[in-house]
């Protein structure tokens, strides 16, 4: 009884703070935590009921791990996992190399005003949606009007049906993703490089160190905590893919699914096209669970290296 009275007293003492967190907390309950409860659909044979969500949930039969068994029995499960992992791996490695390189380039340019202008240009794609970028890409890849096919026919080669030939898409997707985010990520590294004490470089120069030696022995060690942190956080997200990139850029073209289908696009198509509610939910839960383990592991490692950079 005393504990209860205490609790009431605490609540009343914190009532204004509680009022402040209330609206967003309701949002979290409705839009984040209810869907987590909803993942039990993955263990059910989901049937729509006219009496709403809870009725459908309760009246659907338990099927245990059957949805998961079906999912992993398909070839799709392998394809979407492979695509998601390999693309993310390419994005992480190539993105890291390119953005550190671009940050070094920008930091070395003598005319700082000019460097700022370049940076402003590079930042633009980050602000645009994949729908818009899909149109940009179409101006180049369109089969009858695109610039690339004009060039190909111009030099006497056969035009390519870009949106039905999957050969080139791994490269297109990787290049476009790096292109879109490079300006943004290089700014983070640039900020870290600019923050390095100039006297290190002066001392190194007096000792006759070349630019490469300076980069290897001063710049790289100084920005490596940031590199490790950002990379590990990306590794933690390796099971998630950018839906827009894989859905909008290839124009949802069925001929390209083998190289453009990721876990996220698979779940979406399961929900909207094939109506495989149980299996889609299972695929989503598979993604969330593996993703959870990876984020926790990545965060644990980041904490060990640099406590301030960890997510929590």
């Amino acid at each position: 009884m005393k504990g209860f009275a205490n609790m009431l007293k605490n609540i009343s003492r914190n009532k204004w703070f509680l009022l402040m967190v209330l609206p967003a907390t309701i949002w979290f309950l409705l839009f984040s935590y209810l869907p987590m409860v909803g993942t039990i659909i993955a263990f059910k044979s989901y049937r729509y009921s006219r009496d709403g969500f809870w009725a459908s949930l309760f009246h659907s039969d338990w099927v245990g791990f059957k949805n998961f068994k079906f999912l992993f029995a398909t070839h799709d499960a392998y394809i979407i996992t492979r695509n998601t992992l390999l693309y993310n791996l390419a994005f992480i490695i190539l993105g890291l190399i390119c953005s550190v390189a671009m940050a070094v380039v920008l930091s070395e340019i003598v005319n700082k005003k000019l460097a700022k202008v370049y940076q402003t240009g590079m930042f633009l794609p980050h602000f645009l949606s994949w729908v818009i970028i899909g149109y940009f890409a179409f101006a180049f890849l369109s089969e009858d009007k695109g610039v690339l096919n004009q060039i190909l026919t111009g030099v006497g080669l056969h035009p390519i049906s870009w949106y039905s030939d999957k050969t080139y898409w791994p490269v297109i997707l990787i290049v476009m993703n790096v292109w879109k985010e490079l300006g943004y990520t290089s700014v983070m590294y640039l900020a870290a490089i600019v923050g390095i004490d100039r006297s290190y470089y002066e001392a190194a120069m007096i000792d006759g160190a070349s630019k490469w030696q300076q980069f290897k022995n001063i710049t790289l060690p100084a920005i490596s905590p940031l590199i490790i942190t950002l990379t590990l956080l990306n590794v933690g997200r390796i099971f998630y893919s950018d839906f827009g990139l894989f859905f909008q850029l290839p124009r949802d073209s069925g001929a390209l699914y083998a190289v453009t289908n990721t876990i996220d696009t698979y779940v979406y198509r399961g929900l909207t096209a094939t109506g495989e509610i149980g299996m889609s939910t299972a695929a989503g839960l598979y993604q969330s669970l593996v993703g959870f383990v990876l984020v926790m592991a990545a965060n644990l490692i980041v904490r060990k290296i640099d406590k301030d950079s960890s997510l929590f």
Binding site: L30, F31, S32, L34, P35, M36, V37, G38, T39, I41, F53, S56, D264, V267, Y268, G270, L271, I277, S280, T281, G284, L285, Q287, S288, G291, F292, V295, M296, L311
Partner: peptide, 13 residues
């Protein structure tokens, strides 16, 4: 930020 219910349960809710 660590865990989510995914697209399908969100859509249904």
């Amino acid at each position: 930020m660590l865990f989510n219910g995914g697209m399908v349960p969100s859509y249904i809710i």
